[in-house]
Amino acid sequence: MRAAVSRESVLPSADRKLPVAGAGEVRVRVMNQDGAGVVDALGEGVRDLEPGDRVWLWAAETTQDYVVLPRHQAVRMHDYVPFEVGALLGLPALKAHRCLTRATGGPDRLTPGSLAGRTVLIADGAGPIGTAAIQLAKWAGATVEDSAGTPLDTADLDLTPEETANAVAAVAEAVNAGAFRQP
């Protein structure tokens, strides 16, 4: 397989052996070096995923063709969610969720209406974390302001409103199921 290897200020690629999934791990073929892909192999004891399942990843090094990681860091992704959205659901969505739930008096978990009546200021709403924060805050019922002063519209994501709602629901479903709790 090919993997990006950091040396000084360049990121050349290098040939590496295909990693093997150990007990409790999954191997994922990463799509376009983003945080989403297709399960390729299962380690011993993994029973709730199958090869071919589409997943988004969190806390994974994805600058390579394949990545092996603990099962709990690969979250099943609905077929209707594009891989590009799956890439946004990993660390950017985790960081956005954390920001939206760590404010004084804020909710511990986001649910529909959990931010109703609140105004949330998102700095850099055009970046991946800001984009995820906007979508999660809107889903949770907040009024959203962006420091860049641009209109906050799902059209900026090149997704239909239904695709955006489905993607946000997938993040919220995983968050609320406890998928992001560190062991």
Rank of each mutant, 00 (worst) to 15 (best):
M1S: 11
A4R: 14
S9A: 15
V10L: 09
V10D: 11
L11A: 12
L11F: 13
P12N: 07
A14G: 08
A14D: 12
D15V: 05
R16G: 02
L18K: 12
L18H: 10
G24N: 13
G24T: 04
G24M: 05
R27I: 06
V28L: 04
V28W: 11
V28S: 06
R29E: 07
R29L: 10
V30K: 03
M31C: 08
N32R: 14
N32K: 10
D34Y: 04
G35Q: 09
A36H: 01
G37R: 01
G37I: 07
V38E: 09
D40S: 09
D48N: 06
L49E: 07
L49Q: 07
E50F: 02
P51F: 04
G52R: 01
G52M: 05
R54P: 02
R54M: 00
R54W: 02
V55G: 00
T63L: 12
V67A: 06
V67I: 07
L69I: 11
L69H: 08
L69T: 04
R71Q: 00
A74L: 02
A74W: 03
D79P: 07
D79Y: 08
Y80G: 12
V81C: 10
V85P: 06
G86W: 12
A87I: 09
A87L: 05
G90E: 05
P92F: 04
P92K: 00
A93D: 08
L94S: 00
L94Y: 03
K95V: 14
A96E: 05
C99Y: 11
L100P: 01
R102A: 15
R102E: 11
G106C: 11
P107V: 05
T111N: 10
T111F: 09
G113W: 08
S114H: 10
L115V: 06
A116E: 13
G117V: 00
G117W: 08
R118W: 01
R118N: 02
R118Q: 15
T119N: 03
V120D: 11
L121P: 03
D124T: 14
D124Y: 12
G125A: 13
A126Q: 11
G127D: 15
G127W: 01
P128D: 09
I129L: 15
G130K: 05
G130V: 06
G130W: 06
A133H: 14
A133S: 15
A133F: 14
I134K: 02
Q135K: 00
Q135C: 11
W139G: 03
W139R: 02
A140L: 14
G141N: 08
G141Y: 10
A142H: 11
A142V: 05
T143R: 01
V144N: 09
S147K: 06
A148V: 02
A148S: 09
P151T: 14
P151C: 02
L157N: 03
T160G: 10
T160Y: 13
T160A: 10
E163A: 15
E163T: 13
A167W: 12
A167E: 08
E173T: 07
A174M: 01
V175G: 00
A177H: 13
A179P: 07
Q182L: 13
